[in-house]
Nucleic acid binder design. Structure first.
Lengths: 343, 343
DNA sequence: TTGTACGCGTTATCAT
DNA sequence: ATGATAACGCGTACAA
């Protein structure tokens, strides 16, 4: 909507930051000459050059990039990253990757958390658009992104991470969720398990759905029942712990658990600890201490995801590429013990 | 320096984003009328009101906040946060706190990692200044901040987090490092330990120094030697693991370890695991899975630190307060087992 | 109610 | 080499 409640920041006294005009006056030259001198352009006499530089130093002049870019009609190098929660290690690793790649491009990163709330995500995207960020990297919680075409048509590329865009042609970087799931479940089956539980995140998230589907199809392929021990919608460590608890205390609890992401793995560990039971456990996403704890995981690199996404965003915004690119990152099973426990 | 290499982003074709003027023309009204209509101001005939709104919708008009703010002479609600590494859970929790508080203020967060490199930190601050961010929240790696006065004099408040500003009068939010250290070491001493090792981060970091000092003074107060088992400069999990390894394999290894931060605690755990030894262990900073692993820690809340810092930044930038405020957050010892092991 | 003229801080154009 | 002058996209002051 174009009629958003207008934001009216408090007015700050003008003149705290010295302007180019002040520098010019102080140096006794014209505005343009000062500009030239400071920008290191040619055609400035050494005399005035130093006068301007001195004046700038004295006044503590700093270029106002905002105005500069407005005048030049270029956009900033600011890229927006929207994730569910920046404190989630997966997302913060993602942010790190994005930042690393942005650095080489002299870019800057603005982050915001949607808390996985669709409305908030929409608001954040809108916010970034009005701020004219250069690109938006998005771990989306929406199930439809047609509205996001609007963003693209403004020349702001959108890169979807972890979850692809729906109803839109845009770059994306995702994990091979289905494949990773398959690997995990096959690993457990190979270990002799026939009763394997699944605990998933919010089922509206495509990544969760894909992982779940991988679970289901692998179970089915092995002639196992994929409906006996499933809990979904666990979107926090707490919720995951409760789900795991319920799973492990149900009639005929599974002998193995496949945890849909790092939060869930940790929640499951807590529940296992409370109940003092040790089913086999394989988690999606690696996590710190996972090696120490001997937790078998389907690993991938969120930092690499971030880097890739940032690269795509930069390429797109610099128009070095047309059309949408999709990158799927493979997973690796890291057998560390918890996934090798027998039924 | 005022003569920085000027950044010259690639020029983007103009006109991708519709302007207010285009909307006005499309609606057949003057620029100002369009502005009024879109901003919901009074004194616009319903007729033109809808004409403008329709035009805006058709053209997909979005306010250019940058230009708007330039015109109004106000600064954005963007706050910059500089930490060592956004992927470090301590820093990402900090970022989360900042973002939470900023949200209520309709603010936005730009993050950047200094990698604990002074030069990079300086460059990042400069970058934020030229972008006219509203405030800077800083986990500084510098040992002197006189140069930062410059930032303040531009009306950009600087809030120091985790490490206070030196040579500058500025807000700060820190942890009671010395007190936390004391608590930790006293706890170990009370447990019967007389040989307690310390593993610290880069010793140029004030937080590390304070923690180390707390260690030293508590040891001395108990008549123990605080020089027999000290390793400092461990700035990564890897480095900490090596330090712990070396500590635990030295002549007369300590029976207890006090780890200076969360990275070091984890590194120590790895080393203990490798060596299959179990000295008592108390770590500074809580960390995920710390409870599950039964690690005794000196805990505090990085999220709360972030929130507090953001509040201070907002207060300062809205000039609702003058003078510098210092907040010291207390720590809590969480006894979970590892710190209660006997010598 | 509506529009004009001007300004925000900077850069670009084009004379001089 | 230098400097008026006009942009950039928008908002304010003041007329009309």
């Amino acid at each position: 909507m174009a009629t958003e409640t207008p934001e009216r920041p408090a007015v700050r006294p003008r003149g705290v930051a010295p302007t180019l005009a002040q520098v010019a006056q102080h140096a006794g030259v014209s505005l343009k000459t000062a500009s030239r001198a400071l920008n290191g352009e040619a055609h400035v006499s050494p005399d005035k050059q130093t006068r301007v530089l001195d004046a700038a130093r004295e006044l503590g002049y700093q270029l106002n990039r905002t105005a500069s870019m407005l005048a030049r009609g270029v956009d900033s190098h600011v890229v927006g990253l929207i994730t569910g929660d920046i404190a989630n290690p997966f997302y913060s690793a993602l942010a790190k990757g994005v930042e690393q790649e942005l650095r080489a491009w002299d870019g800057q990163l603005t982050v915001a958390s949607s808390d996985e709330e669709p409305d908030r995500e929409r608001a954040l995207v809108h916010e970034l658009v009005t701020r004219h960020v250069r690109a938006v990297i998005l771990v989306s919680t929406l199930d439809d992104h047609q509205a996001m075409r609007d963003v693209q048509s403004r020349g702001i590329p959108v890169v979807f991470v972890d979850r692809v865009g729906v109803g839109i042609e845009a770059d994306s970087v995702v994990i091979d969720n289905r494949g990773g799931s398959r690997t995990a479940v096959e690993h457990l089956i190979a270990g002799g398990h026939t009763s394997i539980g699944f605990i998933g995140d919010l089922s509206r998230l495509p990544s969760d759905r894909e992982r779940f589907e991988g679970y289901v199809e692998t179970m089915r392929a092995a002639g196992l029942d994929p409906t006996r021990a499933v809990r979904r919608g666990a979107h926090s460590v707490q919720a995951a712990a409760e789900a795991a608890h319920s799973l492990l205390t149900q009639d005929q609890p599974p002998t193995a658990i496949f945890a849909g992401n790092n939060r869930i793995t940790i929640g499951s560990l807590q529940a296992m600890n409370e109940l003092s039971v040790e089913p086999a456990l394989v988690g999606f996403d690696d996590f710190e201490l996972g090696d120490l704890l001997g937790i078998t995981v389907v690993a991938h690199s969120p930092v690499e995801m971030g880097r890739t996404a940032a690269r795509l965003a930069i390429e797109a915004t610099e128009r070095r590429r047309t059309g949408a690119t999709s990158v799927t990152l493979e997973t690796t099973l890291l057998a560390r013990g918890s996934g090798e426990r027998r039924p």
